[in-house]
Amino acid sequence: MATAKTDKAPAAAAAPPKKKGGKIGFFLIVILFAMAAPFIMPTLTLVLVGIMPTFIWLIIDTDPQKSSTASIGAMNCAGLTPFIIDLWVKGQTMENAVHILREPNNWLVILGSAGIGQLIVFAVPPMMASLTLNQAEARLKILRHNLEQLKSSWGPDVATTKPLDKIIKGE
């Protein structure tokens, strides 16, 4: 037992500290929503149904940083925003909310915006990587040229850690 305890101790020390504030915030939001639910139920229903694509992507996204989920989620939310405003303008009732959800064009806008987010996730990272790597290659070329210049100016010993007196003596 003692051995097991001592084995676990370093592992625990090595593990990154968990974000306690994140969990607390999440629970606070849930409590807040639960308390506000009787007053904003239509809005809540519209949002929960409208951001379904984001929830689905959140489940299938294996990236720990969840960058793709953030992209799709942002666009999904942007697509949903006009309808939430409409709901608030027309009156926050379950009837209006269901009416909005039953309109196919509205779904086209909501899902289309999420699709744009998806498109960004597919297109932008490779484009950015190509750009970055091209820059790196260009920089690499310049650096290698600089190395050659240093060698031609100071001799091959500039690349070594040989003591100066030995270089001077030609050893």
């Binding site: 793709s68 992209s71 942002a74 405003i85 990587a129 970055t132």
Partner: peptide
């Protein structure tokens, strides 16, 4: 590079676009 540079960049881009769309929806 894609993971560390491309994806955060995509997220940022999406976020900016979303903000623009939200602003447009509010203005509308």
């Amino acid at each position: 590079v894609i993971r560390n540079t491309g994806k955060p960049m995509a997220a940022s881009l999406s976020s900016y676009l979303a903000i623009v769309f939200v602003m447009l929806a509010i203005l509308r």
